[in-house]
Amino acid sequence: MRRWLPFPLLTVALLVLWLLLTGSLTPGTIILGSILAIGAARALLTLTPPKTRLRRPRAAFRLALVVLAEIVRSNWAVARIILLPATRQRKSGFVRIPLDMRAPYGLAALACIITATPGTLWVEYDSADNTMLLHVLDLIDEEEWVRIIKDRYEKRLVEIFE
């Protein structure tokens, strides 16, 4: 079982993508899609990705909701910055944020979350002293951003991945 189905979640996701792409649910497409999905998952095995397990799917779901709300809110904020004439002196800048998390998948998820949110951008990660460089479009208080990243995202990601 373990040998034939190394990544069960990924295999199912690939099969669903294949079915969506072909747009049909006939037995032929399901069989072909399963063969392709299993083959692709086994091909991934040769890359030997670091092992992880999705702990606490409920926490992951809650994090997804938080991220979704944050994306909608910051879409609005960035649209206001672009469209309205500048009323106050807006300043953008870099913030270096020390991280506690070392899990590679957690760091990757944090990078994707930060970059996908308008107004913040993950620029660089330094593995030697475990810090990241963040660029913020509307930078008011650097300490506040360190707190936001740590409390809102890093704490939950540690809970999920470590």
Partner: peptide
């Protein structure tokens, strides 16, 4: 600047 501009297309690519 470039680092400000790189935030802008995220509006289109997310919402």
């Amino acid at each position: 600047s470039f680092y400000e501009r790189i935030h802008a297309p995220t509006l289109g690519t997310t919402m």
